[in-house]
């Protein structure tokens, strides 16, 4: 039995300290996932709480077919997406929509030259404007170091779609950054 299995089994038996440990171990993952998707710090804590309460409720059904972190990421992703749906924020199937790319890159005129750290802050702002599915795969890949299969499992997307979204999201960001860098030169 590995650490995750032992921890999950203690939590399922109702051990409060084990659950607290599980939360501490995975709160970074859940916060990143939920925070990136909902873009609203007011609701962040409440949704993260709901995610962990769902984890607690369902942990006895967890069968270790995947890593515990991937399973928790799945719950976090679904909660965040449901929250967006409740708030009637559009979660379209992702676009063959070339217009989105054009709008995204052309949106806001690049202003004067920006410093490197300002540029990183700008990219963070740009990420917020990407569709939720793009934000989810970027977060799981770059911040949580998950592989395509794990991201696919967490989000319910096929591996090919995960790769495609990563590619398109990074390319959109790169094109947008280029408009700023071009202005610097």
């Amino acid at each position: 039995m590995n650490d995750d299995q032992a921890l999950a089994s203690y939590v399922a038996q109702g051990n409060k300290h084990a659950f607290e440990l599980l939360i501490r171990k995975h709160e970074r993952l859940v916060t990143h996932m939920v925070g990136r998707l909902i873009n609203n710090s007011e609701d962040l804590e409440e949704i993260c709480q709901d995610v962990f309460l769902k984890v607690f409720e369902k942990i006895s059904e967890f069968n270790f077919q995947s890593k515990l972190s991937t399973w928790i990421a799945t719950i976090a992703y679904r909660h965040a997406i449901n929250h967006l749906r409740k708030k009637k924020i559009e979660i379209a199937d992702l676009p063959a929509d070339e217009k989105f790319a054009e709008r995204f890159i052309a949106d806001e005129d690049p202003f004067d030259a920006v410093e490197e750290n300002e540029m990183e802050a700008l990219v963070m702002k740009m990420i917020e404007k990407l569709p939720p599915q793009y934000r989810a795969v970027l977060t799981l890949y770059h911040l949580e170091n998950m592989n395509y299969a794990e991201i696919g499992e967490a989000t319910g997307m096929p591996d090919g779609t995960v790769k495609n979204y990563l590619f398109r999201a990074r390319q959109l960001l790169k094109e947008k950054v280029k408009t700023y860098l071009g202005n610097e030169v």
């Binding site: 540029m119 990183e120 990219v123 911040l143 990074r170 960001l173 950054v177």
Partner: peptide
């Protein structure tokens, strides 16, 4: 541009 993007991500 890619360097900035990957660093930010």
């Amino acid at each position: 541009a890619y360097r900035v993007v990957f660093n930010s991500l």
